[in-house]
Each structure stands twice: as C-alpha cells, then as structure tokens.
C-alpha cells in the first residue's frame, strides 16, 4: 500500500450544526488549512458534514481540533463583517468623498 492509499483510507469526519454554522464560515476555514488537509463539504439542512483528508502526512487528530476552532473564529468573523458592513461603507465613503464618488452632504 503506498502513502497516498494510506491517506485516502483515513479521512476524518467533522459535523457542524447548520443552525449555528454557515457554509461560508466552513469554506473560509477550509481554505486556511489547504496546505495541510483538504475538506470535502457536504451541506445539509440540519448539519454540514466535512470530510478531512490529510496532505503530506499532517496529523489529522490535532488538525481536526484546529479546524473546529477555526470554524468558530470564522463564524465570528462572518458576524462581525455583517454587523459592521454599513459602518465600513460609510467610513470609506467619507474617506474618499473628495473623489466625487459620493456627495459629502449625504454623509452628514
């Protein structure tokens, strides 16, 4: 059995409740770990299932925990982004109001 077959034989499954975790947050977390393991995402109504496959012999036991924490962080990032998006747009508009993109009076 070669190394690749060993890796494909040892995928790890991680589940997230769909009510609290978005597909976006999972995808963002998966991207961050792309150098160590791949994530096959199976979205569901009640839960999202992730199948982790190791790259370059990464220790999946340890990486699975890191992945769970990262998904939590990404969920928080999604919430912060959503909550602060209007104010961010307003600040950028104010910053570049002299460019003529927006009417300064609209910002008061």
């Amino acid at each position: 059995m070669d190394a690749n077959e060993q890796k494909s034989d040892r995928p790890t499954e991680v589940r997230f409740a769909a009510s609290t975790t978005s597909v976006d947050a999972i995808q963002r977390a998966a991207y961050r770990f792309g150098d160590r393991f791949s994530v096959e995402l199976l979205p569901g109504v009640d839960e999202h299932i992730c199948i982790l496959r190791s790259r370059d012999d990464a220790d999946l036991d340890e990486e699975t925990e890191n992945f769970r924490v990262e998904v939590l962080d990404q969920t928080l990032r999604v919430r912060i982004r959503k909550e602060t998006e209007p104010i961010r747009t307003m600040i950028l508009a104010k910053a570049f109001s002299r460019t003529g993109v927006v009417d300064p009076q609209d910002l008061d």
Binding site: D73, L76, R77, I80, R81, E83, T84, E85, I87, R88, I91
Partner: peptide
C-alpha cells in the same frame, strides 16, 4: 457600544485585534 470594523488573529493564547 457599537462594533466598528475589525479583524483578529489568535497568537499563542492571546488575540491580536486590528482596526480598519
């Protein structure tokens, strides 16, 4: 209190927060 846009990264148990 109202949140302003910020990002964060974990650093060995502590958390780096950067504003916009």
């Amino acid at each position: 209190w109202q949140l302003l846009p910020f990002r964060f990264e974990r650093l060995n148990g502590r958390v780096l927060v950067t504003n916009m």
